[in-house]
Design a protein around this nucleic acid. Structure first.
Lengths: 183, 183
DNA sequence: TTGATTCCTGGCCGATCGGTCAGGAATATG
DNA sequence: CATATTCCTGACCGATCGGCCAGGAATCAA
């Protein structure tokens, strides 16, 4: 085999894709493994063959956004504060739009994420990004950056009828207004 | 009996109170009637004696905020747009802080609220409030008002360590920045 | 063709879910 | 005191939950 055998990856990808849609529309704990299996066109046992339990499916759903967020943080960390803030704004808006489905799931799982140690780094990454967004150590500005993130994520949750471009413009405008930056 | 016998109300209130805490910390669908009963110090059957099913418990949890939101909308509806916007901002921030626990629950249940017809008026009230907040019919301003509400609600969700006053100031500042109003 | 490996499934398990019901304790009423 | 009403509960129900396992189908290696 040149790469990993495609059949395995194809099934896994379908399961993750359908799980994301279901987690998004019904919530994580209200979605059963049977729901996922039916949507993915396989049996519940197949889901558990590919993923070591329900949390593992959630982890796979969250993985791409986690990687992207970590990459953004790493890039911002090597820039002076002002440039890091600029990068955080533009790139974070892009990521939020791109991963808007996952954002939904993440918000849903947040209250119970303490019991899932494999996701603590994702939370930490979000907190670090808040620092870059705020652009200063002023508590109010930091809190406003948090506010902005919440607004952005919340907006992405119910943005089914908006196009990517509209959502992008909206989030960018709101972020700059909250942070008092020029357009 | 002069008023309604207090014992009934006392049990009901305890159930609703504990249900709110649990819905907030674990989410609605991840909270079982047994959880609520244990926290309230009674049996699961007692919960179902006082409330006609799990959704009825949720309804009771949401009731006070629903009433307050409806009242705010009614008051704003009789004012000219500019004054309605001013009222919406100050009063909505107050309500969000006061009912921050319920806000958590509401956000959690939002994705599945379509299947719960008894809550559609609550959603409608939220949409109406968005209109008052925006202060104009401009789509961007309306979208920004939505963004602000999402930010505010999101902020209230994870505001466990903030005092009411801090939360109030933060939300007020953020709202005015997003809507480009004087402080 | 044969044997090994990968991928998948039906059937089963114990636990828990929301919900029902007959009846016991407590309290109010006479 | 007796009696009626309110308040509460243990036991139970069918359904579904996440998860496990033995083994069948399909693919690959020889």
């Amino acid at each position: 085999m040149a790469t990993t055998t495609p059949v395995r990856e194809r099934t896994r990808r379908e399961i993750v894709q359908q799980a994301m849609v279901l987690f998004q529309s019904k919530g994580y704990s209200a979605t059963s493994l049977q729901d996922i299996a039916t949507a993915a066109g396989c049996s519940k046992a197949t889901v558990l063959y590919h993923f070591n339990g329900k949390p593992a499916v959630l982890s796979a759903v969250l993985e791409p956004s986690r990687a992207a967020l970590a990459e953004l943080n790493a890039a911002a960390a090597e820039l002076p504060p002002a440039e890091a803030q600029a990068l955080a704004i533009t790139r974070f808006v892009e990521l939020a739009v791109e991963f808007r489905g996952v954002v939904n799931v993440l918000q849903d799982v947040l209250p119970t994420i303490d019991e899932m140690p494999e996701f603590t780094d994702l939370i930490a990454a979000g907190l670090r990004l808040t620092g870059f967004l705020a652009g200063s150590d002023d508590p109010l500005e930091r809190a406003l950056a948090e506010f902005a993130i919440n607004g952005l994520l919340g907006e992405c949750r119910h943005a089914g009828e908006r196009t990517d471009a509209e959502l992008h413009t909206l989030c960018d405008t709101a972020l700059r207004r909250i942070l008092r930056l020029p357009d």
